[in-house]
Design a protein around this nucleic acid. Structure first.
Lengths: 221, 221
DNA sequence: TAGATTGTTAATCGATTAACAATC
DNA sequence: TAGATTGTTAATCGATTAACAATC
């Protein structure tokens, strides 16, 4: 495997906005609309129109001057760009608070993945059914993942077990790990990881609020 | 209120990494360590050392050449920067899958907030206790928020009710909304919003995985 | 002294924004 | 025709990276 500088992804901010364009486009499609402009999309997202224009550019969707984009084209282009036109199967490990919230969430079918089952170690939840998904013992994960050719793993275990469970996923042939733990995982070159840090959003919110209060205090004097 | 260009926050990527530095520093502190270098922090985060150095710079923490930072100084500086040295009270609305996962999560005390209670409309969950927090009817939110001077609202309701519930929060004097819905909220100038889009991380993961497969296919020929 | 690290200035890179012709 | 919008090129801005003196 070559130098893993290759693994660096460009236009991260644009990619992060894609699901929102998709969500709006699907809503409009359901409402019977046929075209949409970046002006409209941008307003819905709370960004400048030029941002939406540039974002859509990277999906290679083509629109019509003066009109906008055909919604079905837009949906198709964004889904293709993200590789969401064929949903990938996923296993979720760690059926605690966050894990079961994700299992209960039904929207993932719109986000390119299809969670097949949950895995845990606690006897209390083994064998139960959450939203149509069985919870299995984690020891069965590597074999099941191989057998079912599951590519995506969702990691919701306690911090202490994160690396160990990630290793089991990798042993099962999983190639992409959506990591909800605060642990930086060590993985081989042929596995990708995306860490989800909820506290990041909270940090941004806190700084915004602090700034707001500071401004008010200032102008109040 | 002045032009809300002022609301634009600089160094967003650095701010988003702050909770991770804090988390590592607290862990080391518990382990009895007294100093830490940006070299170490960077490795734990999976970023380049220069990144960590620049990040910490904006908190105004001072270190010692050749040694690193005193961990207690680091914790204090990051917490002060984020305004997390005094936890803010928060109300959470929408005790569904995501809402109850957040209520069950105990780590928020380390992330500057203190969730006091949950709110919902469904009779099944009214009055129940989740992790020591009562669930009240949403109609009581504005008054309670005012009375208890709650500044932060966590919005986990269905998309259709997002704006309506945000308006109730604002009526209650809430100034910062952590928005887990896909809705772009309309709020007055004296309220800040941070939207949390879980699907963004999934989009990035999908693009990374697609790139990985494409590279393998390429080198496999 | 040698190695590690901070603090800071400068260089590079990429993302955002502006501008505008072409099109409907 | 006038207004709206795409597609594209150029300009600006901010974030990342490099470099290095000063310090322990």
């Amino acid at each position: 495997m070559s130098k893993n500088k290759l693994r660096k992804i460009a236009k991260l901010p644009s990619i992060r906005r894609m699901p929102q364009y998709l969500h709006i486009a699907k809503r409009l499609h359901k409402e019977g609309q046929e075209v949409v402009s970046t002006t409209f999309l941008a307003k819905e997202l709370g960004v400048e129109p030029i941002v939406a224009r540039k974002d859509l550019e990277i999906t290679n969707v083509v629109g019509q001057s003066g009109i906008g984009y055909k919604i079905i084209d837009l949906i198709d282009s964004v889904e293709t760009f993200l590789g969401w036109n064929n949903n990938s199967d996923a296993f979720l490990v760690g059926v605690g608070a966050m894990g079961s919230a994700l299992l209960k969430f039904n929207g993932f079918e719109n986000y390119g993945i299809n969670i097949l089952a949950g895995f845990d170690i606690s006897h209390n939840i083994l064998g139960i059914d959450i939203n149509g998904r069985k919870v299995f013992h984690i020891d069965s994960l590597p074999n099941l993942a191989r057998r079912m050719k599951v590519n995506i793993g969702i990691l919701c275990v306690p911090e202490e077990n994160a690396q160990e469970v990630a290793d089991m996923m990798i042993r099962g042939g999983i190639r992409a790990i959506w990591n909800f733990t605060p642990t930086k995982l060590t993985v081989p070159d042929n596995v990708v990881v995306q860490r989800e840090v909820l506290a990041s959003g909270l940090a941004v919110l806190s700084v915004k609020l602090g700034k707001l209060f500071a401004e008010e205090k200032e102008s109040g004097c």
